[in-house]
């Protein structure tokens, strides 16, 4: 009798816990705004809001192992399959040609932020300075604590891909990878490595931190390339 009661108690508690968890997630999803901008078309004909995404008004902190946010300690190394590897500090990065761009970013967990505004340096400009060899087919973004993310060369050198140091005109907030992070708007946001330390150009592909943990190697939001 006692054992039966224990089992009933366990099942009831588990059921209540499951319902609370599910509703908790549901309440959060329902709270997202319904914005007509999501149905607008991009120049390439795709909708701004990729399938399976919901709109949020702000970047959501998604965790990650924080690196050193100190601008004084920052160094960005550009190396690998290049003829002129170099390292630049924060002041050096600010001295390079700056671009400010507005772009949409898409997190693999299902949220999208439209019109996020970033200031920084194009990866294409960094690659040009490093004189990337023709043999380089991938860019590997290397960040704090061994985090890496791999991006095919053509996509890494797209004009909207950058290393950013400002978000809406302000320094990048602590949860979002200061002092400098990568921005790769057309791939899921885990490719946009926070606490960026280096860009390594590589001959062969090297799946990164999440790619080796079951996430998709390419991460196109419009193809819903979430899992590998």
């Amino acid at each position: 009798m006692d054992k039966r009661m224990e089992r009933r108690f366990f099942l009831r508690t588990a059921a209540v816990g499951t319902v609370v968890s599910v509703l908790g997630g549901g309440v959060y999803a329902l709270a997202s705004p319904d914005d007509p901008r999501g149905r607008q078309l991009r120049p390439d004909g795709r909708t701004r809001l990729p399938p399976g995404q919901r709109l949020l008004d702000a970047l959501k902190p998604m965790g990650g192992e924080p690196g050193d946010p100190s601008p004084s300690a920052f160094r960005l190394k550009v190396y690998g399959e290049v003829d002129a590897p170099f390292e630049v500090d924060f002041a050096g990065l600010l001295a390079m040609p700056q671009v400010e761009q507005s772009c949409d970013v898409h997190c693999v967990t299902g949220w999208t932020m439209l019109d996020s505004r970033w200031t920084g340096v194009r990866v294409a400009d960094l690659a040009e300075r490093a004189r990337v060899r023709g043999s380089a087919r991938y860019a590997i973004f290397e960040a704090a604590e061994g985090y890496t993310a791999n991006v095919p060369r053509a996509e890494a050198l797209a004009p909207n891909v950058m290393v950013a140091h400002r978000f809406f005109g302000q320094p990048i907030p602590r949860p979002h990878g200061p002092p400098v992070r990568a921005i790769v708007p057309d791939l899921y946001f885990w490719k946009s490595a926070k606490w960026l330390r280096a860009i390594r150009f590589a001959r062969v592909d090297e799946p990164g931190y999440w790619e080796t943990r079951g996430y998709h190697n390419h991460a196109d939001p419009w193809k819903e390339e979430r899992n590998g």
């Binding site: 968890s21 908790g24 997630g25 959060y28 959501k60 902190p61 998604m62 965790g63 924080p66 997190c107 967990t109 299902g110 949220w111 907030p173 602590r174 949860p175």
Partner: peptide, 14 residues
């Protein structure tokens, strides 16, 4: 598992 709903490791302030 619920990383979509919160930062599982840190509480942020601003």
């Amino acid at each position: 598992n619920h990383i979509a709903d919160w930062d599982p490791s840190f509480r942020s302030f601003d």
